[in-house]
Design a protein around this nucleic acid. Structure first.
Lengths: 195, 195
DNA sequence: TGTACATCAGTGAACGCGCGTTCACTGATGTAC
DNA sequence: TGTACATCAGTGAACGCGCGTTCACTGATGTAC
């Protein structure tokens, strides 16, 4: 093998990282192959030795984004005590920090309304990411004693996603902060109503 | 004046109606001037005697979409009795019918995640539509005796928007229906907790 | 009532541009001897 | 240790295409006389 055996993989990882940035900045439909390759320090021609098409890049990047979001939100917040774990998830997810750094955030509120127009593989990858997150929450809710834990998880997630998406659309920062706070309180109220 | 004095206005209205359809079908960034004009039975060249630019068309279309949504959701649901009016709004907004007909629905869940990438005039028009809807809900909530009626309205709206946006992303229809139902129940629970 | 004219909504060819994708190539790298 | 070679990650010119926008024009309409 010429070069390091890891060389090409590293380049691919660099392209994926830049694609994730570009998708967050421009949306999944407005990224350009040449732009991403240039940001990765490459020329556009080499792209097709890494990915079969632009759509495959989008799917792979979405996988990466969901993986990172899962690590950031679920693995780090859903610890032993289910009530405190869920409260922590709510605090981290429905926060000004999450609103202000979509590049490091959950892809769901960023991409939810783009989804109906995306390709089938992209939709499937999105659905899998959503389901995984829901299941994690449902498991904790069940430990809290919730009946219909999965339904509750889905609607709580809908509320969290709506709050983050809307907080990004509200131009007045103080009003946006307040909305997030009120949403956090309402969500925790739903948690406490279980036990 | 040649032609009817209303002739050009009618053509303009036809273009706007087709633009609204196209925005719902393709997203505000993927519509094409030529495509919309063709659907309106015209050639693309004439476009610029109606609108200064494509972006102006998007702004004007958004105005129309918000106006129609306001008529559909607020004027028809927020009647005399505040509790029943709000319940009715929830039932109509967080419904499978609304999920399945985005063309006749509220532009907020459809466009919320596109917004960060849109032009300033588009953002302003969106913000105005959002505020108008929030204010209407807040007025009713205040009549119910809510303190912080405006905060409550914003978070309830976030929950409603999140539920509709997510219901469109969930591929399993039965699961999507159930999620909407659970969201409606949760929202009504918040209403009943006021009094 | 009929004709000549001015208006202007709409036409369609043309433009420059950025895009996704292809492909013949180059040159740095690791390997064989 | 040094040289010749094979590999293949990355290059950059080229392609066809659809887009937003411009502009000289056409021809149906309403008006003036």
């Amino acid at each position: 093998m010429s070069y390091h055996s890891e060389h090409k993989q590293q380049t691919r990882a660099r392209i994926l990282a830049e694609a994730a940035n570009a998708i967050h900045a421009l949306g999944p439909e407005h990224i350009s192959v040449a732009g991403i390759m240039a940001r990765a320090g490459l020329t556009h021609g080499g792209f097709y030795s890494h990915f079969a098409s632009k759509d495959e890049l989008v799917v792979q990047t979405l996988s990466l984004m969901f993986e990172q979001a899962y690590e950031r939100f679920v693995n780090r917040t859903l610890h032993a005590d289910p009530l405190r774990g869920l409260e922590h998830l709510i605090d981290v997810y429905v926060s000004p920090a999450h609103r202000d750094t979509p590049q490091r955030g959950c892809p769901i509120p960023s991409l939810a309304s783009d989804l109906p127009r995306m390709s089938e593989p992209v939709k499937q990858r999105f659905g899998a990411g959503l389901e995984r997150l829901t299941k994690s929450m449902a498991r904790r809710l069940q430990q809290l004693g919730a009946t219909n834990a999965e339904d509750l998880a889905t609607t709580m997630l809908a509320q969290m996603i709506g709050a983050v998406a809307l907080s990004r659309a509200v131009t007045d920062r103080a009003a946006s902060d307040l909305m997030l706070q009120t949403s956090r309180d309402a969500l925790k109220g739903r948690l406490h109503a279980i036990g």
